[in-house]
Design a protein around this nucleic acid. Sequence first.
RNA 1: GCCCGGGUGGCGGAACUGGUAGACGCGCCGGACUCAAAAUCCGGUGGUAGCAAUACCGUGGGGGUUCGAUUCCCUUUCCGGGUACCA
Length: 1020
Amino acid sequence: MIPSKTSKYPKGLYLCCLIRAMDYPFEAFEKKWQAYWECEKTFKAHNDSNLPKYYVLDMFPYPSGAGLHVGHPLGYIASDIVARYKRLNGFNVLHPMGFDAFGLPAEQYAIQTGRHPAETTEQNINRYISQLKHIGFAYDWDRMVNTSDPNYYKWTQWIFLQLYQHWYDHRQKKARPIFELIHHFETLGNADCQQPALSGNVEGINQIFSADEWKSYSEQTKQSILMNYRLAYQGFAYVNWCENLGTVLANDEVKDGVSERGGHPVVRRQMRQWFLRVTDYADRLHDDLAQLDWPESMKEMQRNWIGRSEGVLLDFAIKGITEKIDVFTTRPDTIFGVSFICIAPESDWVKRLTTSDRMADLTAYVAEAGNRSERERQTDVKRVSGVFTGTYALHPFTGEEIPIWVADYVLAGYGTGAVMGVPAHDARDFRFAAHFQLPIHQVITDPTIQTPLQEAYEEKRGTLIHSDFLNGLSVQQALKTAAQRMEEQGLGQRQTHYRLRDANFSRQRYWGEPFPVYYHDQMATAIAEADLPLMLPKMDDFKPTGNPEGPLAKLKDWTYNNYPIETDTMPGFAGSSWYFLRYMDPQNTACFASKEALQYWQDVDMYIGGTEHAVGHLLYSRFWHKFLFDLGYVPTSEPFKKLINQGMIQGVSAFIYLLATGIDNTDASTENRKDTDAIPPFIVTQKLKKHIEAGLLSNEQKQALNIILNVSAVHGNVHYLTNNNLPLIYKRNIPIEFVSESAENGLEKDELMIAAFRSDPANTEFKEAIFIDLADGVIQSLQAPYICLREVEKMSKSKWNVVNPDQICKDYGADTLRMYEMFLGPIEQSKPWNMQGIEGVHKFLRKLWRLVISQDDQVLLSDDEPEKAAYKALHKLIKKVTEDIEALSFNTCISAFMICLNDLQELGCRKRKILEPFLIILSPFAPHIAEELWSRFGHTDSIAHATFPVFNPEYLTENTFTYPVSFNGKVRFQIDMPKDASKEAVEAATLTHASAIKWLEGRTPKKVIVVPGRIVNIVL
RNA sequence: GCCCGGGUGGCGGAACUGGUAGACGCGCCGGACUCAAAAUCCGGUGGUAGCAAUACCGUGGGGGUUCGAUUCCCUUUCCGGGUACCA
């Protein structure tokens, strides 16, 4: 119970811990109750219950090597409070915990530590479990799932096979077995159910065949046609290939052109991949959001990700060519404003449309555009470029000639890779037209528009002009009329487009679920369900191969009935897309969960987790759930009824500045030596860094720097690396414990404790670190203290700013940690972690203990009837906590407890009839002290089996109300009135009150406003 | 650029459908207890002026609606999150 000296504590706490422990011996009883809950299985959820169910779920964690930090429990505590609260209210509560153990981070960690992922994952999971148990969560541990356990991933593989063996029928709007599709082809061909072209360009796409033709196809052809319908399919596609990680990444694993994890460059590369046809569910995923009780921002992010847009696919005839070019537009109303057409440089049309005299220009432009990386093209948005092809399209209504251009602002991957340019009403088209001096035809007018247009008018508001049959219509009318006319005249058809792409489901990694698929005559074939799980083989060399094949390709015997098995593995989101269903029936070996279990538990009533999963996990889970719903396995079409986002708890990190240095290998005898061994790190002060970066480094100073660098050089010449002739300086996070928090003990605030820092076993590279400063214009080894900089950022092991809950549990107790995390502020708000306020809640718990337990450890409890004031305090609490838990406003609950306890203490109330309900209400928040006092009060059963008290408004009714009386809105005095006094009575009493007469100063009020039970306002 | 949030004491944060702004806690100040310190208990604590009662100001800035605005409307500014040549 004595806090360790390394952790950060408010002044004085360290000394007085022994005395305190007698006030509130949490250490002894918290352990006791944690063991009791585990032994007695107090929080076991039963599948055969007559009680109403409540399913409250946390997003399960990656068991990372850094262990649980104080940010994790924020959501877990909130869900635990809800779970315990619902249980006290008579619900059969399912509140499980598990581990998302497969995936890139687990494997990266294993590679870093040189140990097998299975081993490190198990070790990390055990650490997480022990940490979670120390916080006293009411989980049903018998239902724990681990996505890397074969008994679990058997069913991940099974669901994958279901996806593989089903297709999406857009007319019935549901998934159907692939054999029904085969039957359909055999009897009717595919004329009525063509699959639109999507990410995977499987052979046979968009090809119409009759029943007889189908029957004449070879097995291989049939299979490749079916591949274009399966919900899990193989296709060739451009993927995000990350050379450093040796794998492809999903779109949402790539941020700003680099991998989200590690920040490595990502390039586009075409590869054969497995995909999930999530686009087939785009409409349902979009529309069903409306029925969910989720934060609006979360729904909006999903809508944006799906990116549904409705418009018209419009044909433009081309002068001199019989084929027509398709463009997709959401603004058919502006058709008479078209002044050019633009196609993407990657488009197949480029070659066909370019006239011979323009060929050289075009080839050069396309090559240049190809060389610009995706990232450049996206960041350099303002740059306008393009080349005319020399060919003209014809306007569908006027027949006017419209030039066709190639420009890189048009993306090959969206729509048809061709757009109609309407500069007057599209900002990008406007910029393009202005740059190349193409005509700008305004076709919408509105009183707010200035003519001539200075910029594009993009509002969908106004009246159509210069537009033939659309003239005089509003934009809304014109949108409909134009689309209709285009369809009638066979010029185009209405279409819905999505930004959403099919989910890439292949990873060239070891630590994931193997695909239950083998190759028979080059055709992907499903492994028999009876042979699941297809076990991930134990491999010692599991590092990426660095080429498009996964590590499993290294195995010679990776075969099924002598056929080679797929060497890709599934991505991280495979196991997490359905784990919430497995909790319902985790031991089942016959199916992923029994019908009865699914029927009883239905869906998740409350799901708590971070916003970072807004589009990844939450979208894929909804997709899998809908698929299983179509197959009749799950009873609801949505998995998560209510979603709560908890904020992030950030850590304070400290950093130093390092000078990037290199070495000249002039000495041949040292060729085996690693350069870095010889160069100590050079740490520069903030002042020097600014000086260097401002370009102020003089030649003398450069020389001085060189001397310092080379004094310590053992071999060769150390020099600093440069960028534009400036030495390179970069930030480096260091453990915060080496930085002084305030100016004391002879240290300055934020001063680096150099001696301790050098001897840190976790950072041996800094043992010989050399500090360089700029003092009085002279570069020299550091004389003054080195001051670090601090920053508030996401907690992460690499930033050394992780605060573990373990030490806090040990020093203050789990109840204090739980209440403090809730007291910090609204659950959805992000905030930096600090220990400043923890004393407050700890004091509260100590006060409670001392109220009922004497110095000699006797229970002070009376069975007398409590006074009215005590009942009032209690029922105020019941009301507030009940309302606030329902509203998930936990911070105000803690305040309410404090207020109530302060009241009870003032009354000296030690009455059973008050304190027992108090403990029940407190038990979701601080379960250990509640259990301990409950048992000391003579109960033999757990407080978890008690019943939550019911609010009785009678205890709060008052017979008087104190009215604030204001003059012109400013409160001047107060007056007591009977609760049921009439408006007139209140007004009369107020106006005759001595203070009122003083404020009236003889004037007659213009108006007197009496709001019963609220306020009196006198207008002068 | 666009779409969401959000600006309240020294700090974290309260405030129901417009009705006494600053609950609760931290910190700080004073007092009791103690040889002393810690813990504990009591009192104070938005700003300005005043010995005081009290007065004036005060929820990012400006304007409006209202008897009354942190709350509603307009406008402006700053911060956080998401997202983007998506046609």
